[in-house]
């Protein structure tokens, strides 16, 4: 009994070390983002299709001016609840470069579902030139590439404030409570009613931020729902198998004194 307690404590300790390893880079003076409830949390967590579609609208109308989502293809949008025709329509609104054609020329054509969603800039240099030297990051993985990613993105989008007295802001920088160092080159991206939602949801800043996070969380981990479903079945199966093996072990070992 004693040994199993110590063993459990040991495992807990290792988990703790693993956990602190994860939080070790909570950077500098930025506070930890407050925890939000997300539909994709937990064992049965799934993505909220309506929120993701609203979030995609926010991305398209606001973020896409500066940020790409280069790991997403138009075809992926079917996963957030758009029909095949809707995906074709969304793709066709965007011109992409294709080629070379038979005469060796590159040419423009409407995008197809099989195309990656193009970013706003041709290269990083062009992006910096258009943004006072700052590079807008690609957003495909942002929800996984920060500590407590979804909470962080939400906190950042809603964390713009006037700088406290005594804080000297660098030119073209904005004060944000949750950004490491508090000085961020991105202007406050969301303003009330900036996006007119098709489903009539009021476009408050927290609402748009939440919807955008739902979209970006899916963009970073599109297989989460499949993973959650499979995990439940796998673990259920393993529990049954464990029970069977335990019974078999008891039975077999009852033949001898041990």
């Amino acid at each position: 009994m004693f040994r199993s307690i110590v063993a459990a404590a040991l495992v807990a300790g290792l988990a703790l070390v693993g956990g602190t390893a994860g939080t070790a880079r909570a950077e500098g003076d930025a506070p930890h983002p407050p925890h939000q409830k997300w539909s994709f949390d937990g064992v049965f967590g799934t993505y909220d299709r309506a929120a993701m579609q609203r979030g995609f609208q926010v991305y398209k109308e606001v973020c896409a001016a500066c940020h790409g989502v280069k790991h997403l293809y138009f075809r992926d949008l079917a996963q957030i609840g758009y029909s095949e025709d809707q995906v074709k329509g969304i793709a066709a609104q965007v011109q992409v470069t294709d080629g070379p054609n038979d005469s060796g020329e590159m040419f423009q054509r409407p995008a197809r579902p099989s195309d990656p969603i193009p970013g706003p800039f041709a290269n990083d240099q062009a992006a910096r030139a258009a943004n006072n030297g700052a590079l807008p990051v690609d957003l495909s993985l942002i929800a996984k590439a920060r500590v407590s990613g979804p909470d962080y993105v939400f906190a950042l989008l809603t964390g713009y404030k006037d700088p406290p007295a005594g804080v000297k802001m660098n030119p073209n920088m904005y004060f944000n409570e949750y950004y490491p160092g508090h000085q961020i080159a991105m202007p406050p991206p969301l303003n009330p009613d900036q996006v007119k939602y098709a489903d009539g949801t009021p476009g408050s800043v927290p609402q748009m931020a939440r919807d955008l996070v739902s979209f970006l969380a899916w963009a970073a981990e599109p297989t989460l729902e499949e993973r959650h479903r499979a995990g439940f079945k796998v673990i259920l199966f393993l529990i049954v198998v464990t029970g069977v093996f335990y019974a078999a072990k008891r039975k077999i070992w009852s033949r001898i004194q041990h």
Binding site: G18, G19, A21, G22, R25, V43, K144, A145, R146, V147, G149, R227, H228, A230, G231, F232, V234, I235, L238, I239, V241, T242, F245, Y246, A248, K249, I252, W253
Partner: peptide, 28 residues
């Protein structure tokens, strides 16, 4: 049989990480 029992207990722990905490031990 004892190893099979131990294996299936271990696989449950493993599966919890793979399916529900896949990036817990990694670095964002």
């Amino acid at each position: 049989i004892k190893d099979m029992f131990g294996l299936s207990v271990f696989l449950i722990v493993f599966a919890v990480f793979v399916f529900y905490l896949p990036n817990f031990l990694g670095h964002p």
